[in-house]
Design a protein around this nucleic acid. Sequence first.
DNA 1: CGGTATCCGTGTTGATACTG
DNA 2: CAGTATCAACACGGATACCG
Lengths: 108, 108
Amino acid sequence: MKDSECAPLEKLLNQISGQWTMYILWTLDTNGVMRFGELRRKVDGISPKVLTQRLRMLEENGIIYRYYESTIPPQVSYELTERGKELSKPLYDLCELASRWYGDETKM
Amino acid sequence: MKDSECAPLEKLLNQISGQWTMYILWTLDTNGVMRFGELRRKVDGISPKVLTQRLRMLEENGIIYRYYESTIPPQVSYELTERGKELSKPLYDLCELASRWYGDETKM
DNA sequence: CGGTATCCGTGTTGATACTG
DNA sequence: CAGTATCAACACGGATACCG
């Protein structure tokens, strides 16, 4: 494998390595379809601005879907795409490895 | 898997997701033992300060070794630890996936 | 409800020059 | 050779207030 070929990986890593991103992906992976407010409560402490940023980025990169219904009040739901689900497997391996190294007691 | 258990993963991701970090790991994985100057030339465009930062962080987290010889001029070499090599496997999976998604034409 | 706008403090990065 | 020191520029996260 040549050096240049890890550029996509770097891009992917940059996307999922933001401070809350893992929690968001995890929460969606665990709970399936979720609404903005649910996510906001589950990913405790995140500000709406940052949550929106993360969701937009994940959406733009095809990792989550965004379902918009312009009812009153509006309803917006998020869900992992196939890519998002595909991502959870290698991420699980990394997680297993990270837990072994750093232990499960690690706090962020 | 519970939410809290991805904290170590987040820590690990934060460590390897810095701008140059992947290239450094890749280069070390490919070339084996390397000296500071070699790395600096190979990871083109990186400043010595940032290269040092990355190497220190990777060293502190047990991903690379640092060999120091106080000859004149001094010789410092770096190499992946067992952890570092262990890391390359799941990372390879992610890389394969990232290349498939984003293509190999991606530039950083 | 599901955001956006704004401001601000902080962390990260880069360029450059210098040192043991 | 292998860094460290210094400073400036910028991106980022956090809090809050407001909007359709």
